[in-house]
Design a protein around this nucleic acid. Structure first.
Lengths: 123, 123
DNA sequence: CCCTCGTTGAGAGTGATTCTCACTCTCTCC
DNA sequence: GGAGAGAGTGAGAATCACTCTCAACGAGGG
């Protein structure tokens, strides 16, 4: 762990908004002004591979977002403002086994993303 | 609907592999050799907006894939070969309402993606 | 000290997608 | 049975998020 990687990790962990790489670099540069773009991307990659953060592809999937919460959880995305909220729901194992029963794949994980309108974006 | 859009729609509908734009253009050019790349992307956009096909972002989300099956269904992605399989599972409405109970969002849809290893990629 | 090796920052490169623009086609509407 | 308007097209440039390359740096071991 180099100071740059620590700074990136701290930025992801302290954010509540599932930040993109661009938001992370903006935050990190407030404390480490000289850090390079490539270093941030490399640090994110290292942190994802070592299980310290997770990478998310939400909504249209165009940009990667990062989550400092590595406990299993799911997301709700507002289709108006694209904000992302964490939720903890229990997917019955019968659902997973139902999926596994339909194709010859050993399922070991899943991603569940809900979509809707938040209170600000309704009406 | 122009001939180009018909050709793109036919290519997506006839494919069983959730094709990317690149795979679609390759297929479409076998019957419409002069079609341009931009036209294929524009046609895909029109078809998605009109609900005739759906766009998927699976796995790392780097490339968009398209699905001619617009009935609600979910996907299993092999983490080895990245092949995508359709499954029809029933997410209990209690799961959706549990998610909706945790955040102030009116949830109207969800995406569920399973990951695992297919029979070819095991071992 | 000095060497090695991993890491860094800058900037070029990449791949998927989108934009721009001149051109064409298909409709009206005289 | 043109004329003009508007949508759609193909080619190529542009964009965007990200990844690679490379020279320089820096900590640790001998």
């Amino acid at each position: 762990m180099t100071p740059q990687r620590e700074a990136v990790l701290a930025a992801v962990r302290s954010s509540r908004v599932h930040p993109s790489a661009e938001e992370i670099i903006r935050q990190v540069r407030t404390t480490s002004p000289g850090i390079g773009l490539a270093t941030v991307y490399r640090s994110l990659d290292v942190l994802v591979r070592s299980g310290r953060i997770t990478e998310l592809r939400l909504g249209d999937g165009a940009v990667a977002r990062y989550d400092g919460n590595v406990r299993r959880h799911d997301h709700v995305v507002c289709s108006g403002c694209e904000r992302v909220f964490d939720v903890e729901v229990d997917l019955p194992s019968s659902v997973v086994s139902a999926a596994g029963g339909q194709v010859d794949v050993d399922i070991d994980d899943y991603d569940l993303e809900f979509r809707g309108r938040c209170e600000r974006c309704r009406g």
